[in-house]
Design a protein around this nucleic acid. Structure first.
Lengths: 340, 340
DNA sequence: CTGAAAGCGCTTACAG
DNA sequence: CTGAAAGCGCTTACAG
């Protein structure tokens, strides 16, 4: 507003002049108003309004050594993350949670070798104060670099290999998967398979662990033939499901470690002429937007994405405040719809 | 890298000392190396590597009065944009196009009244140099403000009401819609309806115009009963389609102004027991990711999103360079799949 | 509670 | 081609 065409942006000096105080006093008002008399406070606030003053963040950052913004960092080597609707939910949630603290979100994608270099340079260049990490695979070079540089960072999901150094927020993966499997067993299914995510991700590793637990609790034996691996893409879900069906023609249920892969599994079941949930019952994981729009609608394990984002931002701000990295584990919840 | 734990970040002063030159010379090397002797250039580059120097962007921005980053601004009042898969494609495309210029992308969402205030404040606060505008409805207050503030901005799609002041990149909406309609007519369909977008958006207004043209060229008369309006959500597409079917039981084709609405229309047709394309042929618009994954796969009008993003970034950089706002119109292309 | 002043790390005329 | 110096707009001890 104001910024009358052609005129330069008002500075703290202009506000000081208008309020009849020094720059220092204006600055104190801007930074919380401590040690400022009510009179001065009122005069400065009036002058700010009058001049249309907006703080110059670069000048501020230069002295405070803080940028006041954080990165939303995708470390996924492929385009997978963009294909996944969870991404939108996460991105939106973080943008909102950050906006409440008046902090902008910078979107960074490090999915190619050269992007990686750029991103690390960018982050170590002081552009941002900290990073929100997504889709973290064990051994990801960017994550390793950030961790060793000591850049404040919070991962979405347990960061395998950096459980100690990095803060993170995760749903209880194991318990969620166990519940899903127990639900299938409770439906009377006896030949239950699973499509896992990559085993170098917490979602791949721990949901498989939960699946095993569920099977065991139901008194069902474990059979390697009932496990197929995907990489979180829809296509991989389809291929894994096809493998499963081929290896176990009598399969009557499947737990798929992500909704997107579940969509692919649905494709495969459809082509194989198996009805869902009639012939094969299916439970996904995420409760992503696609779970509802799928036909039939997916029974799935809900990840509380909004809450996850809020907690991630809270943890990151705490880190910036000098606190130690913490972990937050949120409960999973089974959402029963049409597929099981 | 470097940034040895505990040690402060190297500054231009450290590089100068290591290279045995003045700060000014280091700065010149950093900014293109003009007026620098080969000897000095080599010494400085070596010193940069040696010290692990990375420019402090805040200090630079303070003097250049440029932030070096741009905003990806969603002005949509609802959550619609996030529901739409086009969004991901656009976001990714712009991030990449910007990364090539080493510019970070700031994601800003102005979908509530107070968000709007924040965003305008943020932008006029010098955080960013310019904005990429998405989902612009006529009369959107944020867009009006940016335009009147003279903030460099490029809209995705024609910004109704600001055609002169704002640069923009758009697909040829009218021609795309005309082609879609002509395709349906060419299939021998005679009772062709349309589901439009909101008429205060270029996609709503101009695709309807193209539909009319197509009908006229095919010698088919215009009937108000054949026009239903949606708001780009899937749900609205479904409702509009239901209305259309009720008003025109003999409908044999429909042009839907977005793929997402087309998905909703498919839902409606399915429930009404009409086969696609058997009973009703359908053409969408966008060629968004959902077009391919839909069953049956959507015949649609392709928007070259990658190209759109590249052109938007190019135009924005030109604006920042002092050039006048320009418009780029890209050709539309019909992609024939299964629905028509 | 307040002002004067140093300093954050750069860039950019200005001399030479 | 190069260095010395001013200045970008803030914040923050330091005196008072």
């Amino acid at each position: 507003m104001v910024l009358d065409n052609g005129r330069r942006r008002p500075t703290i000096e202009d506000v000081a002049a208008a309020a009849g105080v020094s720059r220092g006093t204006v600055s104190r008002v801007l930074n919380g108003g401590v040690n400022v008399s009510p009179t001065a406070l009122a005069a400065v606030n009036k002058a700010i309004k009058q001049t249309g003053y907006v703080v110059n963040t670069h000048a501020r950052s230069l002295v405070t050594q803080r940028s006041g913004s954080v990165a939303f960092l995708l470390t996924e080597p492929q385009e997978k993350f963009f294909e996944d609707p969870n991404f939108q939910v996460l991105l939106r949630g973080c943008t909102q949670a950050l906006a409440e603290h008046d902090m902008p979100l910078l979107l960074s994608i490090a999915d190619s070798e050269q992007d990686r270099e750029r991103v690390v340079r960018f982050i170590s260049g002081g552009h941002i104060d900290g990073a929100l990490l997504f889709s973290v695979h064990a051994g990801n070079p960017v994550v390793d670099r950030l961790a060793s540089l000591g850049i404040p960072a919070v991962a979405c999901g347990l960061p395998i290999g950096h459980e100690r150094e990095l803060a993170y927020v995760a749903v209880n993966e194991t318990e969620g998967a166990r519940m899903a499997t127990a639900h299938l067993a409770g439906l009377g299914r006896r030949r239950i398979g699973t499509v896992t995510g990559p085993l170098d991700t917490p979602g791949g590793r721990d949901r498989l662990a939960g699946f095993r637990e569920g099977l065991e609790q139901a008194g069902l034996g474990l059979d390697q033939q009932l496990i197929a691996h995907g990489d979180y893409t829809r296509r991989s879900g389809q291929l894994a499901m096809e493998r499963l069906l081929k290896q176990n023609p009598e399969l009557d249920a499947v737990f798929v470690a992500s909704d997107l892969m579940a969509l692919g599994a649905l494709d495969a079941l459809d082509r194989a002429g198996r009805s869902v949930p009639g012939d094969v019952a299916l439970v996904g994981f995420d409760d992503s937007p696609s779970a509802i729009s799928a036909r039939p609608a997916l029974t799935t394990v809900r990840q509380p994405f909004k809450r996850i984002c809020e907690e991630m931002v809270r943890l990151l701000l705490a880190l910036l405040d000098g606190q130690e990295p913490a972990a937050v584990i949120l409960p999973a919840e089974l959402v029963v719809r049409e597929t099981a």
